[in-house]
Simulated assay, not measured.
Amino acid sequence: MLRYIPKEQLFLSNKGWLQSRFHFSFAEYINHDNVNFGVLRVLNDDMIAPKSGFDMHPHRDMEIVTYIIDGELTHRDSMGNVETLKRGEVQYMSAGSGVFHSEHNNHPTKELTLLQIWILPPQKNLPLLYGSHRYTDEERKDTLLHIVSNENDDAKIKLHQDVNFYVSELSKNKTLTFNIAPNRQVYFVVIEGKLELNNTLLNAHDACECVDEKVLEIKAKSDTHFLFIEMANG
């Protein structure tokens, strides 16, 4: 079963320096009927204005993945990590026992766009993890790039939770197929362009819940960029 979620259905937040589409209940968007999809707790489609960002703030008992769409994200945290990431690069943090961090767009003129994704951990007070990986354009071109997995799988970024992230930049008229194992589900997001997902048309910023499906057939209707998260049913 596919449940199509058009971008118009997402909650829009506009703080001036920060514009967001919230896929799930978050901040000023309180919706007890839309809190999570399995272990996926937060998916925010953010635009951060130049010379602005999130000042130092705490997190704990959450696994956080940030996927950079365009611009430059500069990260600092209480573990001593400082780095700047660009398009297609991925940052991850497992904030088990607690960590402080800041996220800024220090560019003088260019907006920063990204997906901020929070995954519920399998238990509380897990060891802190931080890292990033600088995936290239070629690695995700016309293929499914496995960017995040659990600790026992083969992605270069590993979280404590049993979850998998895939991204692709798929050329117009190209097709990709993904097989879904029994008792697994997928949350799918179109970042740029448009595509057909099992014959359902999705445009940029649209999403789709995929439950009790055996296979996903992805057909690019234009050059398109997408991300999806595979996890256990529930």
Rank of each mutant, 00 (worst) to 15 (best):
L10F: 04
L10R: 11
F11Y: 15
L12V: 14
L12N: 13
S13I: 02
S13R: 09
N14G: 01
K15Q: 15
G16H: 11
G16T: 04
W17A: 10
L18T: 09
Q19S: 09
Q19I: 15
S20M: 10
S20A: 15
F22V: 11
F22E: 10
F22G: 07
H23F: 04
A27Y: 12
A27H: 12
E28G: 12
N31L: 02
F37V: 02
F37G: 00
F37T: 01
G38V: 10
G38I: 06
V39P: 11
V39W: 10
L40T: 12
L40C: 04
R41F: 11
R41A: 14
V42D: 14
L43W: 13
N44F: 02
N44T: 13
N44A: 15
N44G: 09
D45P: 05
D46Y: 05
A49Y: 11
K51S: 13
K51W: 00
G53A: 03
M56K: 11
P58A: 09
P58C: 06
H59W: 07
R60K: 15
E63S: 10
V65I: 13
Y67C: 03
Y67R: 03
D70S: 15
D70G: 07
D70K: 04
E72C: 11
R76C: 09
D77P: 02
M79F: 09
G80V: 09
N81T: 08
V82I: 06
V82F: 07
V82N: 14
E83N: 11
T84F: 05
L85I: 13
L85R: 02
K86L: 06
K86F: 13
R87E: 13
G88F: 10
Q91K: 09
Y92S: 05
Y92R: 10
M93Y: 04
M93N: 05
S94Q: 08
S94F: 03
A95Q: 05
G96V: 04
S97N: 10
S97A: 08
G98T: 05
V99N: 01
H101A: 08
S102Y: 00
N105E: 11
N105D: 12
N105F: 03
H107F: 00
P108F: 01
T109A: 08
T109M: 10
E111V: 12
L115F: 15
Q116Y: 00
Q116C: 13
I117M: 12
W118E: 05
I119T: 05
I119S: 01
I119E: 03
L120D: 08
L120N: 08
L120Q: 13
L120W: 02
